[in-house]
Design a protein around this nucleic acid. Sequence first.
DNA 1: GCAAAAGTGTTTCGGGTACACCCATGT
DNA 2: ACATGGGTGTACCCGAAACACTTTTGC
Lengths: 229, 229
Amino acid sequence: MSYTYEHPRPALTVDCVVFGLSDCSLNVLLIQRANPPFQGQWAIPGGFVDMDEALDDAARRELQEETGIKNLFIEQLYTFGSVDRDPRGRVVSVAYMALVRQADYRPQHADDAADADWFAVDSLPELGFDHQQILAMAHDRIRSKVQYQPIGFELLPRKFPLRDLQRLYEIILDREIDKRNFRKKMLNMDVLEELDEFEQNVSHRAARLYRFNRRKYQQRLKEGFHFEI
Amino acid sequence: MSYTYEHPRPALTVDCVVFGLSDCSLNVLLIQRANPPFQGQWAIPGGFVDMDEALDDAARRELQEETGIKNLFIEQLYTFGSVDRDPRGRVVSVAYMALVRQADYRPQHADDAADADWFAVDSLPELGFDHQQILAMAHDRIRSKVQYQPIGFELLPRKFPLRDLQRLYEIILDREIDKRNFRKKMLNMDVLEELDEFEQNVSHRAARLYRFNRRKYQQRLKEGFHFEI
DNA sequence: GCAAAAGTGTTTCGGGTACACCCATGT
DNA sequence: ACATGGGTGTACCCGAAACACTTTTGC
């Protein structure tokens, strides 16, 4: 089967920067390329956009093929279209950023990848294509966006102690935060649900668990509320 | 001439939301479509991406064809790729936003447009395609970005009185701003150059002119400075 | 009882906001 | 002289930041 057009068309792909969080670092999911170009090098997962799927759907599909996870948070980042960004020819790529609960699954690599693994954002391997640049932009985006939108919760389990939320911000923003001020501000925003559950299996006093209440957040937004760290 | 590919490819276009400022409104440049679909309706200027030009270059080129202006401020906005957004088939469009000094030129329409004109953003005509949505996103973007990046200057003449700068913010943000506080804040940022020139041909005391000093701004950025209205 | 982390208020400081009058210029 | 807009300083208030001790739990 082949397709013919009057004018030449660039190929169109989506690439997806997947962020996860571990105890002490913000991580991204990379795949090791099984085929040329950049065979053996690490890269951001991605693939071609089908004719009958929207860009967001393509990103979600690729991500599911690479990771097995559905229903996650994704957001369009930027579209990269330098003429020479892919040695195989003109390829324009719509980059997405996704946030996942890293503990929920093991990376599984698709056929076009030799391997898939997490890397801390501050110690990345060399990347193929312009993926270094895409990743840098994604990192900037998450750093700034986490401060004024409640997207951090996408990286945590549904139920979490405040300490973990604070640690999340400390890791992403790369600065220490005062515990009392943090709790005060976070709880005052009134978008967290205080649960009657506590951490398990800790060798010290167990912390209370909280849950992000999206409904309450949406409601507060309408009242002119503004999420901010 | 025709081009054949193994897999089908969406067509790729750039669309450009051009903002200008007049005495009392923020405006966008629209063209009236000369051909179907949506013939006779107003739309955002745009066109196909050539194989040997980067996306930004395509946006700049289209813009120059539509308006005759080069060297203006452009910024990528978002990529729109719903399956049915164009009745002619699958067309993915990378949307840009541009800011121009509206007084500097008259709109001139290209061959594919019957007409081109400015419309105040708060009284737009009905638009073809998903251009209403693109425009709404551009409007959101300029509104939020103008508050933390010095892009407003792109809409003003090089030399301007502070009153005009304040009016710009009042128009874009749609709220009144206190004159003394505005001047204090703006001058304290130390990115404006106080000129020894004054307005001409006004029937009252002439205001001093200022100029945005980009070099000083870049330098202050490195010192950890943060532009904000 | 000791190690480890949870949980909790008050004071201080700086920046944002509110606010009104005199001055320069052209007609 | 008057109409029009240019230009200027101070007081208050609120939210951000700094800061240390007691409590709970497991070992």
